[in-house]
Simulated assay, not measured.
Amino acid sequence: MSETVTESYIGSGIVYVNGRDVGNASGVKIDIEQESKTQPNYRGGGGNAAEITKVKSVKLSMTLNDFSNANLALALRGKIDVLTAGAVTNEAIVAVLDGLADTAKMIDTTVAPVVTHDSGTPTYDVDIDYVVSAGGIRALSSGAITAGQALKVSYTSKAGNALQALVESGQEVKVVIDGVNDATGKPNVLKFYRWKPSPTSGLDLIGDDFGSFDIEGGVLADSSIVATGKSKFFVRSAA
Results as ranks from 00 to 15, higher is better:
E172W: 14
A85R: 01
G78L: 02
N48W: 12
E168F: 03
L97E: 04
G148H: 03
V88P: 01
K37S: 14
A25E: 08
T109V: 06
T4Y: 10
S141C: 07
T53D: 11
G27M: 12
A49K: 14
F234W: 06
Q149Y: 04
M106Y: 15
L72T: 07
V5I: 11
V226M: 14
T53N: 12
L74C: 06
P113K: 07
K186H: 10
G218Q: 13
I215P: 02
E33P: 00
S223A: 15
K158V: 03
G136N: 01
D209A: 11
S231V: 00
A25N: 11
A165D: 14
S142N: 07
A75S: 05
K196W: 12
P187V: 00
K29S: 15
Q39V: 15
G78S: 05
K79C: 14
V55S: 04
L60G: 02
V82G: 09
E51W: 15
G23D: 06
I177V: 08
D21K: 05
G86Y: 01
A85F: 07
V17E: 00
K59V: 07
Q164R: 11
A238E: 15
G19A: 05
T109Y: 01
G207C: 10
G185K: 01
N65T: 06
I206E: 14
D31I: 00
N24K: 14
E168T: 10
Q39E: 15
L83N: 11
K186N: 01
G136Q: 09
Y124R: 02
G135I: 06
V167F: 09
D214N: 09
K186A: 08
R194Y: 14
A134C: 13
I137F: 09
L83P: 03
I14Y: 13
W195S: 06
A147R: 01
G143D: 00
G23S: 04
D214K: 07
R236I: 13
K191A: 10
N18E: 04
S2T: 07
A50Y: 13
D222A: 08
